[in-house]
Design a protein around this nucleic acid. Structure first.
Lengths: 232, 232
DNA sequence: GGATTATTGTCGTAAAATGAGACAATAGGT
DNA sequence: ACCTATTGTCTCATTTTACGACAATAATCC
């Protein structure tokens, strides 16, 4: 009877999204806390029968965090048999008075597709959905214990982000459309978790011919004002 | 009633495997031809209810090609709504007299997980399973028209293999355990589809400190015999 | 207004990696 | 014994990166 009770969703398949943001200093991940359970989790969801996976994730991220128009990339499917502890899901359903027959399918085995998202921390305010009573940013090295295998999923997302950062030049998605060279360097340093040499970084970025230089940014500080850049 | 008729499989989810082999000259992919249909396809299959995805793929590759102990890596999940043409599946079922009620679930929408495999072309002989009447190697630039979106899947696999080759040093899986520098270079050249400079390649590989040098290989040719190497 | 301070943009030189070719060492063939 | 094709290594030029020097400058402090 797998999943047939809930006509809208592909059974046994979910997605979870690791949403990265950069607060100017630290790389953070968006975490939901479920009502009355003390359970922390990545925002995730299910795929409707006639909905593409990408659309489902786009929609799910919007529904659960209020974030729209987000850079999204699929990075792995987690297919271990016992990756999902049904006890977690059960606690969540009970706490929400959703522990009905129609929702028992959620207790089955699930494979989950991992996505990561990059967003401009400053320009958006995430909003929790009806299932969650809070939504919050957590530094990547100070994550709470997450439900099921979500810590593992977040770790893998960071790995993939690291290896994609320089190659695919996706760092821009963590910044406002105009930014200083220093900000860009801080993004690289946080993601790669290593210090970079200022002059080398600047020369490298400029030589790639991917940046457009704009007006200067006067920050009211007692020193030379940096230029603003955007990606071409 | 999704999938509930066939008690063993996760519904709406399949896998397909792009098996690469190198014949000493060209990079090739293993393709199945289904009995009495003229349909070509990548070897694939379904995931049992209590089987991990990785195990399902391992088992599936073994069942459908006879290949065992293969280097496997997951690279993408294809989740478009209309990616699978049910007409293809139907023809296949009819041709096998499998067009029974119990198998109708195979005509539904499927998401498929793409894996690629790297095997030593010379040491294994693929064998078709009962569904297929032939199994064959096809050069990556001379693939036949494959069923559903399998051509797209193969293309994506090659892309990922390309970007992983140097970074993750997986080329060895396409060669016997001992090989010459020339053979290794040919693998790189076929995968990357570009010529490499012999001396630069040799120096680079040796400097990486990943190769062990063994005895010379005497090929009966009128010139200096090359050393054999293996990966450390 | 002139000196002070912190940061930025740019350059120069050193070091490392890569490109491109030279050349001697072979394993056999003639 | 000489010839041929290929291999392993070296040298030198070029490119990329590391690392530090330095001048420009936006505000603040006398």
């Amino acid at each position: 009877m797998k999943g047939s009770e809930h006509k809208n969703f592909i059974p046994n398949l979910s997605f979870d999204c690791v949403i990265f943001g950069f607060n100017g200093n630290l790389l953070k991940i968006l975490i939901l806390e479920y009502q009355n359970t003390g359970l922390f989790a990545l925002p995730g969801g299910f795929v409707e029968e006639n909905q593409s996976l990408d659309d489902a994730v786009k929609q799910g991220v919007k529904d659960r965090t209020g974030l729209d128009n987000v850079f999204l990339d699929q990075f792995y499917i987690f297919g271990e048999v016992n990756r999902a502890d049904p006890e977690h899901m059960k606690r969540m359903l009970v706490a929400n008075n959703d522990d009905t027959k129609e929702n028992r399918w959620m207790l089955e085995r699930f494979l989950t597709v991992g996505y990561y998202a990059l967003i401009n921390y400053e320009e958006v305010t995430p909003k929790p959905d009806h299932l969650s009573d809070s939504i919050g940013w957590y530094s990547i090295d100070e994550l709470p214990k997450l439900m099921m295998d979500h810590n593992k999923i977040a770790e893998k997302a960071l790995e993939v982000l690291r290896s994609n950062l320089s190659e695919k030049l996706i760092g821009m998605n963590l910044l406002p459309s105009k930014f200083t060279m220093k900000q860009l360097q801080l993004v690289f340093e946080s993601v790669l978790d290593q210090q970079l040499r200022r002059t080398t970084f600047q020369r490298k970025m400029l030589s790639l011919d991917i940046l457009e230089r704009h007006e200067k940014l006067f920050q009211g500080k007692a020193h030379k004002a940096p230029y603003l850049y955007s990606f071409k």
